[in-house]
Design a protein around this nucleic acid. Structure first.
Lengths: 152, 152
DNA sequence: TATTGTTATACTCTATAACTATA
DNA sequence: TATAGTTATAGAGTATAACAATA
């Protein structure tokens, strides 16, 4: 198996670079009608995927970054009217970060562009292959995340 | 398909963050016996995968970064004795970057640690699933790269 | 006393512009 | 005149340390 994975690793790196950086990101971001730095957009995506307001610390966990970084990005998002910060009713130390309507729209539109790219790129695929890929890929990410977390 | 991919996208981002950043990277790097910044290690991996010396510009292409970034990283690698720079015999303007023995060892050992993580995480998988995943994932990365490149 | 978040600061990563050398 | 690479500089991304407020 290792030989196959050895080929895969650079490809995964390349894919994540392609999607996460450079002009391609600018193009997808333009579709969202906003001008945000990448980590700020990542926060919108995380809130969108969560479907509920999240704490600063929880966002930092999911991004796998330190707290202060999230604090600053959220300040920009709040200034732009894309998120709101409310005191957590369960704990006055914490803040809950929620998408505003504008923030929800931006997240949805950004996601639509990127998913559209995926759909176009894979339009020739047999449906069975698409199903298999998403199933196996989800499981891999799951198993790998669990395993890597267990190393600490 | 799009709903499944919508869940997958943050997971892919998270996976690439997990592998590419933070203490996990430090641990894999320690296995390689060197102390390099991430982009420098990426260059070692690219040269290792290529199996032959590459030009600065070609490395920049594969990393999807601009030239000056590669120049500086290569200067560090050369100072550490992990790569050599020789004038391209075919074009005296260009430089060919080649792994030294030490650089080859560092790349191999780093790769062994990361591939070991993959192998452990997927150890319970049926062989057929592993084969299917690598085959489909390679094809996806390929098709997606082609499609995204065609957008420019 | 421990935890959530913020402020201040510094380091890493990457891009752009100006330049040198060769084609 | 165009191309490969380098040097210089600036901006984006992230971490660490010190602090404030609440638990």
């Amino acid at each position: 198996m290792e030989n196959v994975l050895a080929e895969l690793l650079p490809q995964l790196t390349r894919l994540s670079n392609t999607l996460g950086r450079g002009r391609l990101y600018e193009r997808a971001r333009a579709g969202a009608g906003v001008t945000l730095e990448r980590p700020a957009m990542t926060i919108l995506m995380i809130l969108n995927a969560a479907g509920e307001p999240l704490r600063i610390g929880e966002i930092a966990n999911r991004m796998q970054v330190e707290g202060p970084h999230v604090t600053r990005q959220v300040q920009v998002l709040e200034k732009d009217g894309l998120v709101e910060r409310v005191v957590d009713p369960a704990d006055a130390r914490a803040r809950l970060i929620a998408l505003t309507n504008r923030g929800q729209d931006a997240a949805s539109q950004y996601l639509a562009v990127v998913l559209g790219w995926f759909a176009e790129a894979l339009s020739d695929w047999p449906a069975a292959d698409r199903r298999d890929l998403t199933r196996l890929l989800a499981r891999m990410v799951d198993d790998l995340s669990t395993h890597l977390a267990s190393l600490d």
